[in-house]
Each structure stands twice: as structure tokens, then as C-alpha cells.
Simulated assay, not measured.
Amino acid sequence: MVLVTGGTGLVGSHLLLKLTRENIAVRALYRSADKLSQVKNIFSYYTDDSLSLFNQIEWIQGDILDIPSLENAIVNITQVYHCAAFISFDPSDFKKLERVNREGTANIVNICIAAGINKLCHVSTIGTIGRTLNGETATEETDWTRQNANPYAITKHLAEMEVWRGAQENLNMVIVNPGVILGPGFWDSGSGSFFKTASKGYNYYPPGGSGFISVTDVVTLMTTLMNSNIHSERYILVAENLSYKDILHKIALTMGKRPPTKPLKFWQLNIGRILDKLKTIFTGSNRTITKNTIYGLKHPSIFNNSKIKQVIKTDFESLDEQITFSSKLFIAEHS
């Protein structure tokens, strides 16, 4: 049986869909029952048999910070996909980020070692791949530093260190570092914000860019790695490097909206950062623009995906196809 943490998120829900379609016995952790409806909704995008597939999952209420619930969840498990994480780029959330992402991952590693599972797949982020400033592409071996890194990336790096510690204790593991994951259903977070932004027809686009990949490619590569003899490796999962201008242009066109044509200047972003900080002080809302955010926009990385392509002979899904598919669903849910 397979255990999935973070099963109610973008990657986790698509992973559960893939596993149930392949008739693999699967157990998934959830924290609150209201999140389960989102998984059913994701399933319905792809099949008319969504409820039957959903009912194949053995759901266990628990938390990666709650050891007893993990001990209950790990019984008779042979593989673990660790997709759970807390995502925030607000420096004031650092303590919570460290607790969930580092400590929670340490708990998963410890429980996997104690239970003697066959393999662990840890879902990290492209943010833990080191930056290059000389025009070279970033690889899995590029040195990483905390300097100018956002708090989410810092705590995910710490989480990776826990997984590598597990490897030293004879835990078979793989780490995946996806770029921006394109997929439907989570419109208020992650890549969903690109669809939400494009739908409003703004004139301005942010500078910089990133690596992008479809969610279906991510879960396919994860399961392929888990069912291989590969272990003690990490892999960049990026299908294509794109500027934010290009990705917003593609999404806007599929929505029948006018693409943005004006780049945001860095002085505008710095004014926005100050206003954003004042908004946080007076309203208690989370920060969305920080110095680290602007640094990342000013110094975008180009990511090299040759390592995963060498070990898994597969063609990446067209990002245009995923964008079209997701845009249609966004329109259907917001019309």
C-alpha cells in the first residue's frame, strides 16, 4: 500500500488520481474534511468515474506534526509520497514554515525508517536549486545559499537535508524539484494565480521568469522514479523555461483576454513592496512582495532538465495543452 501526504493539494490530488486509476492501494492523510471536496473536484476534471476512484482511497485524518497519527498511517505501507508542505513567502511565517516543512519532513523520514518502508519520494521545490549569475543553466549540482532566498525555499532546503539524513540511515529516497507546476483547480495559490491574473486583463507583467511543468508530468515522473531502482538522487522537473510575460501571454490568449504588454519596472515593484508592508501592518494580511521576491525577479535562473531526461526517456507534455485545458476549467468555474 502507498501513503500520500498532502493529498488535498495540487500535486497530491493528481497523484491520487493516477494511483487509483492504476488500481494501486492508497492511503492519504488529510487535516480537515472540507478539503476532500477539492480532491473530488479535481478527479471530476478527468473522468466520469470520479466518485468511484475517490472511494478507493483510504483517508486518515492526521498531520505530519502529529506522531501518533503518522504511526497509524504508516501501518502496512511500502512507499511514501511526501507532498505536504506549508507555502508562504512572508518572512513573518518563518517559524511555522520551519516547523511544518523541516520538522514535519523529519517526522516522515523517522517514521519511514522505523517502519522499514521500501522508498520515499519527497516533493521539494525549484527554489532549493542554486542560482547562477553568469548565464549558465542551473543544475542539481549548482551550489545553494540562503542569501537572498525566500523563507519557503530556506525551509524546503532544510527539509531536503532531513531526507538526505534518512538516506544515510539506509532509507531509499528520491527528491524531485519541480518548477512552477501548471494545473487546474487551485486558482488562489501557486500557478493558479497566473490564471486568475490573466483573467483580469491587466496591462502589466512582472519581470523575470522561471521553469514550468504540467502537474500530470510531475506525478508521472514521481511514480516512474518510485517504481525504478533509482535512489539517493534529486531531479529538477522542468519542461520549459519561460518568462512571466510569455506565460501570462499564453494564458490570456486561451481566455480570450488581451495579453499584458507593459513590464513592471523595479522602482514600481519597490514602491509596491513598501505599500504591501504597510498593508500588512494595518490589516494583518500576508506579505506578497519582499526584497527576496524582487531579487528573484531581477535574477531569474534557467534550469537544466537533462538529468531527469537521461534516466527517464519521456516527452514532456506540451505546456500549451495544459494551459488550454486549465484555462477552460477556470472559465467554466468563474463564468
Rank of each mutant, 00 (worst) to 15 (best):
Q79W: 08
S69H: 12
S37N: 14
L53E: 04
N41V: 07
S88L: 04
Y81I: 07
I60K: 14
I64K: 01
A85P: 10
A85V: 12
H82K: 02
K35V: 07
L70Y: 04
W59Q: 09
P91F: 00
I42Q: 02
Y46N: 05
D63R: 02
E58S: 15
V80K: 01
L65R: 02
L65K: 01
I87A: 09
P68T: 08
N72Q: 15
V75Y: 10
P91S: 03
P91I: 00
I67W: 11
I57T: 08
T78G: 10
D48S: 15
Y46T: 04
N76R: 12
N76C: 07
Y45R: 10
L53N: 04
A85S: 15
D63A: 08
S37A: 13
Q61H: 12
N76Q: 11
I77K: 08
L51I: 14
V80G: 02
S69F: 14
K35L: 10
V39F: 01
Y81F: 15
L65W: 03
I64C: 05
N72A: 11
C83K: 00
L36E: 07
Q61M: 14
P68V: 08
T78Q: 14
Y46P: 01
I87K: 03
F54E: 06
N55M: 10
K35G: 06
G62K: 01
I42R: 02
C83M: 04
I42C: 08
I67F: 07
S44D: 08
W59P: 04
L65Q: 03
S92N: 13
S50V: 07
F86Q: 11
A84Y: 03
Y81Q: 04
N55E: 14
F54R: 09
Y81H: 09
P68S: 09
S37E: 14
I42Y: 03
